[in-house]
Computed example of a mutant assay.
Amino acid sequence: MGHAHAHGHGSDKDRSQGRGRRLLIALALNLGITVAEVVGGVVSGSLALLADAAHNFSDAASVLVSYIAWRISRREADRRRTFGYARAETVGALINLTTLFVIGIYLVYEAANRLFNPVEVAGTTMLVVGVIALVEDLAAAWVLRKDTGSLNVKSTYLHMIADALATVGVIVGAIVIMVWGSGVSWIDPAITALIAVYIFVHASHEIREAIAVLMDSAPRDFDYDAVVADLKAMPAVEDIHHLHVWQPEEGKVALEAHVAVSEPDLGEVTDMTERMRRRLHERHGVDHATIQVELAGRVRHDTKLIRNE
């Protein structure tokens, strides 16, 4: 039996103290946005402003969960968590995205209620607070831009950009109300509904990615057949079975396989597995490979990928 292991340490280097500091700064900025928009929404009567405040508060909670998850993910592997704690960030993302769906449903309900029961909206207050929120949204995105190599932080970064776009919608609504008056009060719940639609679209895409990691799915673009063909093309390889591919953490690919070979020499087998490891990394982006080599004439177990009992 031979084993080849490829270890990637890039994620450990990426989890710098600087990332944690930037997440905390983004958290403070989002909380500032939330407070400003809640006050402005209550004073102006703008549901769109309150909707954006709810969205920004969820983002503040998201950044907090991301920070906590980042802290947990830095722990070393132990006897209970032998793969380490990196997936803590994915679990945090799943919590945040589920909360976003709940907020989106609530905003749709409030928008419908306000559409049938309109109230007067103070456009000037809505505009001023909207501009303040836009500046803080862009500042939060700017702070996080250096860590977008991390899927967890990139997700938060994209939320900040999207929040800025939603705030632009609030500003446009304020200008419309200031120019045309209360006759266009429907613009406020309409913008609220659009923010809710954005939340649904954005969160549904992100949650699929989080679930894929937690379900041990291979990356969407991983070419399973090409890997099998590539390994079978190597000298002395007779068969490949029990090939499993998954993501132990965001952005990392792991693989394990049983390789039946006709070469009985242990030294040659060891060199062969090393060549396989390099090929998997260079051609298919596999960061960690565990290869169990078996003598082709001695393979007696079931070679199906999943055994049905």
Score class of each variant (00 low, 15 high):
residue 230 D to H: 14
residue 150 S to M: 11
residue 177 I to C: 00
residue 261 V to H: 01
residue 86 A to V: 05
residue 244 H to L: 14
residue 256 E to M: 07
residue 206 E to V: 05
residue 128 V to I: 12
residue 293 V to Q: 00
residue 197 V to P: 02
residue 207 I to L: 14
residue 236 A to G: 08
residue 272 M to V: 07
residue 182 S to D: 14
residue 253 V to C: 00
residue 215 M to P: 08
residue 181 G to W: 02
residue 123 G to C: 06
residue 225 D to W: 05
residue 119 V to T: 15
residue 69 A to F: 02
residue 29 L to Q: 01
residue 179 V to K: 12
residue 284 H to Q: 08
residue 21 R to P: 02
residue 257 A to N: 03
residue 257 A to V: 09
residue 51 A to D: 01
residue 139 A to V: 02
residue 2 G to H: 10
residue 167 T to S: 14
residue 222 F to W: 06
residue 19 R to Y: 05
residue 255 L to Y: 04
residue 267 G to W: 07
residue 160 M to N: 12
residue 184 V to S: 05
residue 219 P to Q: 13
residue 223 D to H: 15
residue 159 H to P: 00
residue 77 A to T: 13
residue 167 T to K: 03
residue 216 D to M: 07
residue 135 V to C: 10
residue 52 D to C: 11
residue 254 A to R: 02
residue 253 V to F: 02
residue 34 T to I: 09
residue 83 F to I: 04
residue 17 Q to A: 15
residue 277 R to A: 14
residue 180 W to G: 03
residue 65 V to G: 00
residue 103 I to W: 08
residue 86 A to K: 07
residue 285 G to D: 01
residue 80 R to A: 09
residue 173 G to E: 00
residue 76 E to L: 10
residue 253 V to M: 01
residue 27 L to D: 01
residue 269 V to G: 06
residue 51 A to R: 02
residue 298 R to I: 09
residue 120 E to R: 12
residue 147 D to G: 07
residue 181 G to R: 02
residue 219 P to S: 09
residue 163 D to P: 05
residue 274 E to K: 14
residue 90 T to V: 12
residue 69 A to D: 05
residue 217 S to A: 15
residue 309 E to K: 04
residue 74 R to H: 09
residue 171 I to K: 00
residue 185 S to E: 09
residue 43 V to G: 02
residue 110 E to S: 10
residue 235 P to V: 13
residue 22 R to S: 10
residue 302 D to M: 07
residue 117 N to K: 12
residue 73 S to M: 08
residue 264 P to N: 14
residue 82 T to C: 07
residue 100 L to N: 02
residue 43 V to E: 06
residue 303 T to V: 02
residue 266 L to Q: 15
residue 62 S to A: 15
residue 283 R to K: 15
residue 176 V to L: 13
residue 234 M to H: 12
residue 212 A to Q: 08
residue 55 H to S: 06
residue 79 R to T: 13
residue 80 R to S: 12
residue 188 D to A: 05
residue 153 V to D: 01
residue 163 D to G: 09
residue 196 A to H: 02
residue 68 I to E: 08
residue 221 D to V: 05
residue 130 G to P: 00
residue 182 S to V: 03
residue 97 L to T: 08
residue 206 E to N: 04
residue 224 Y to I: 11
residue 245 V to A: 11
residue 85 Y to E: 06
residue 221 D to P: 01
residue 127 L to V: 04
residue 23 L to N: 04
residue 91 V to W: 06
residue 272 M to G: 09
residue 80 R to K: 12
residue 95 I to C: 15
residue 84 G to P: 05
residue 12 D to H: 11
residue 8 G to W: 00
residue 94 L to T: 09
residue 150 S to E: 05
residue 285 G to F: 10
residue 47 L to R: 04
residue 170 V to A: 05
residue 281 H to A: 09
residue 74 R to N: 15
residue 51 A to E: 01
residue 73 S to I: 06
residue 236 A to F: 14
residue 98 T to M: 13
residue 54 A to M: 11
residue 77 A to F: 10
residue 19 R to V: 09
residue 63 V to N: 06
residue 296 A to C: 00
residue 239 D to T: 02
residue 89 E to Y: 03
residue 251 G to Y: 01
residue 223 D to G: 14
